[in-house]
Design a protein around this nucleic acid. Structure first.
Lengths: 225, 225
DNA sequence: CCGTGTGAAGCTGTTCACAGCT
DNA sequence: AGCTGTGAACAGCTTCACACGG
């Protein structure tokens, strides 16, 4: 099964990640097989959508039976590229950047049969441009490095993903640096909408907008003309 | 203009927040009027979409002229319910929860003509269930309170939005408590997909899924059958 | 007979194009 | 003449329903 990954929608890609999490739960409960219908019922998903999403990448199920939990989980790990550790650079050593660096990334793949972790994410380095912060360490001891070293670090330390946690006013400059450094995927926590070349993926996690959206739904209609 | 807010899509609501930010930039540059076309060009948006989104809530523009920046900004602030401070409770005093509490919420509305802040978000309290953490303070001095006090605090301190930053395994229990306490909007940072009653809004900000989605797009197709 | 994989139908969100107001 | 507001066309995502394989 060959698919152009870039043509897969973010909706689908995001759900693959959710399915992976569900399968992890089932595996812990020693469930060996599951049908799309039962999976949907159990985790409040849609069974047709599960089948469609999976069918994009191959034929993983058996008609009349369903899917084998462990095998499907392995496939999803491979499809999502989680069978290796992916290294992150956090740029911006403010409260949020330090918190993310200290949380140590995320274990995604779970454990292989032998108990060996299969992959996930690791924060490889934390950067800032403030001389007062450079050289200090976070609570868990991760050093704050000069953002001037970013390009060098990305190339020398196999870093693939940039996490941008600077003030909005610095976002454009920092994203430019990340692209320049060769990062192909960025997670942007600022409220700035920054443009990147088409071969770079950027995801916006804009907390202000999320809160404002919630505010919208709980607001009484009070607009006066 | 009367609209059932619940029927407005999250896409539209999110864009209103983005438009508000754009108008803030224009206001700082002393731009008085702008057409949907120029607004779209300037911030890489779509002009038809801007007009459609705004038209949902009223007729804010003048044909042949465009929109008045200050007036439209005021309308958006009212529509988004940002003409008052909305108070947040952060539940989970780990790295992320403390970082969010210390970042002090977000100023959304900007300044009124007189320089008075118009509104935004304020972190009113931080909770945890770990006796070792309760009673301690964050870097900026915010106290960590016992999650048992949540209901009382929500009712007594006009808290409207809950921010869930606990481990995934505790998410369901914490969300239940938030709903019980009377919170009508939740921002969930855990990877657990939790169900809430239909009168409560929940937004999932699942960092693991965001990273896994990025991983998907940068992964070489390596699935072996 | 059961459940997957999939074309077709349905629905939602986006873009187009123009009538109508200033 | 210029630009908004809006119905109609379009695109993309979701759901349905069933043929097919086990």
């Amino acid at each position: 099964m060959v698919v152009d990954r870039q043509s897969v929608s973010e909706f689908t890609a995001g759900r693959l990640s959710i399915y992976l999490r569900c399968l992890g739960v089932l595996e812990n409960e020693s469930t060996r097989h599951i049908s799309s219908h039962d999976l949907a019922e159990r985790f409040e998903l849609n069974s047709s959508q599960i089948r469609k999403d999976l069918a994009t990448f191959g034929e993983f199920g058996v008609r009349g039976v369903g899917y084998e939990v462990a095998a499907l989980k392995r496939h999803l790990i491979a499809i999502l590229g989680l069978d290796q550790i992916r290294r992150l650079a956090v740029v911006g050593a403010g409260h949020l950047g330090q918190a993310l660096a200290d949380s140590g990334g995320f274990r995604s793949g779970g454990l292989r049969p032998g108990g060996i972790p299969t992959g996930g994410f690791a924060v490889a380095a934390l950067f800032d441009n403030d001389p007062a912060k450079i050289g200090t360490r976070t609570r868990t001891g991760m050093p704050v490095r000069d953002v001037e070293e970013l390009g060098e670090a990305v190339r020398g330390e196999s870093i693939e993903i940039g996490v941008v946690t600077v003030p909005a006013s610095a976002a454009e400059e920092v994203v430019r640096r990340c692209v320049q450094a060769g990062l192909k995927a960025l997670l942007n926590f600022t409220s700035a909408r920054v443009n990147v070349p088409s071969d770079v993926r950027i995801k916006h996690v804009d907390l202000a907008t999320h809160l404002e959206t919630l505010s919208f739904y709980i607001a009484a209609s009070a607009e006066r003309h």
